[in-house]
């Protein structure tokens, strides 16, 4: 695959040139952290970050998203009918997304784009987006991407892989979509520069390794009934931080909100950490305790997903949930426990 050299002094100009064809999204520093947002005309993404506080998932899957609009006014012909909200599907490009966050979209895609149903909003937003990722030259101590089927230079979720090489970027063209974006920016200086050495160097800096190889060999019920959940869940506050910051968590809630005679049906991120998530109308709650909910989160990511798709865990190893958990619940430790679990006689049943 081709590698293009982009001199950093051509960076702003190229983006400006391409901005007629793309809406750009990128990391921007706000208060104490970086987060993704749509860039204003002429605004540059700030690449002076290790990773954004929240993942880039909101670019494709906003925390609050309008689905339909409706009128309750019986004088209008189409009252009480749901009409799809108009969305801006113009081509977009996410600049500086880390490889972990980009590959997360591939894991999430299995949920939103499957043989039976396609989620129109997610699919359209995803398909209209070009992912120009930024390789991680200095991964954090809490990153474990290489254990999660990903890596600091991983290309599989990307259209272009940008590597910061001091006074220039090396841009590896991964897909046709990526080639088009580079062309639109007028970056075309091909180079035979080798990024493999940089990649090896970055991978060697990953210090966390989490074994996942034995998860698939255990039955759901063995892991579900394992004795360690009470201890693992004790500290959990059941806040939604881990799920909201996670690039691979996709759960959502659907709500109608009316003002006067009109309103919208929207969806909002939701979290398996909240009791309300599964509460029946009758008052019965199938996941009524904190232990149920914590177990659900880890079982989903590390067992149900593994079994359902047969292609690894629902995690890219970005480490956000570890860094942001107010009580230091560490998915690496739980994964180790699950992976090495040997069922014992006398474990509680169900």
């Amino acid at each position: 695959m081709k590698v293009i050299k982009i001199d950093k002094k051509d960076w702003a100009g190229g983006l400006d040139k391409a901005s007629s064809g793309y809406r750009f999204f990128g990391p921007v520093e706000d208060k104490e952290c970086h987060n993704f947002k749509e860039l204003d005309k002429g605004e540059l993404p700030d690449f002076n970050f290790s990773n954004t506080r929240l993942s880039a998932k909101s670019v494709v899957f906003p925390q609050t998203e309008a689905m339909f609009e409706y009128s309750l006014d019986e004088n209008e012909a189409d009252h009480h009918l749901m009409k799809e909200c108009r969305k801006n599907d113009a081509p977009r490009a996410v600049l500086g997304i880390r490889p972990c966050d980009a590959s997360a979209f591939l894991l999430v895609k299995r949920n939103f784009d499957n043989p039976e149903y396609r989620d129109p909003w997610w699919v359209k937003a995803y398909e209209s987006t070009t992912f120009a990722g930024l390789a991680c030259n200095n991964p954090c101590a809490s990153c474990f991407c290489t254990s999660a089927g990903c890596g600091p230079f991983d290309e599989k979720g990307l259209d272009v892989l940008l590597v910061d090489a001091g006074d220039h970027f090396l841009a590896k063209v991964v897909t046709e979509k990526g080639r088009k974006m580079l062309a639109a920016a007028g970056w075309n200086a091909e180079t035979d520069a080798d990024i493999e050495a940089l990649k090896k160097d970055a991978e060697s800096k990953i210090s966390s390794f989490v074994p996942t190889d034995k998860l698939k060999d255990k039955t759901t019920m063995e892991l579900y009934n394992a004795a360690f959940w009470e201890e693992a869940a004790f500290a959990c506050l059941n806040c939604g931080t881990c799920t909201y910051s996670c690039p691979t968590c996709w759960c959502f809630d659907i709500q109608d909100e009316s003002k006067g005679k009109s309103g919208i049906r929207m969806r909002n991120w939701d979290s398996c950490m909240y009791p309300l998530f599964t509460l029946h109308g009758s008052g019965h709650n199938p996941r009524g305790t904190k232990i149920h909910r914590v177990r659900q989160r880890f079982m989903h990511k590390l067992k149900y997903y593994v079994d359902k798709y047969g292609d690894g865990i629902q995690c890219v190893g970005c480490g956000r949930c570890i860094r942001l958990c107010p009580v230091n619940i560490d998915i690496r430790k739980i994964c180790e426990k699950m992976n090495s679990y040997e069922p014992k006689a006398g474990d509680c049943n169900r």
Binding site: N111, F252, T278, M299
Partner: peptide, 18 residues
Amino acid sequence: ENRMKCGIGMCGRCNVGK
């Protein structure tokens, strides 16, 4: 029966195991 929203396996709440 479980609490549901989307009804098409996407919103994530009604799972029992996988």
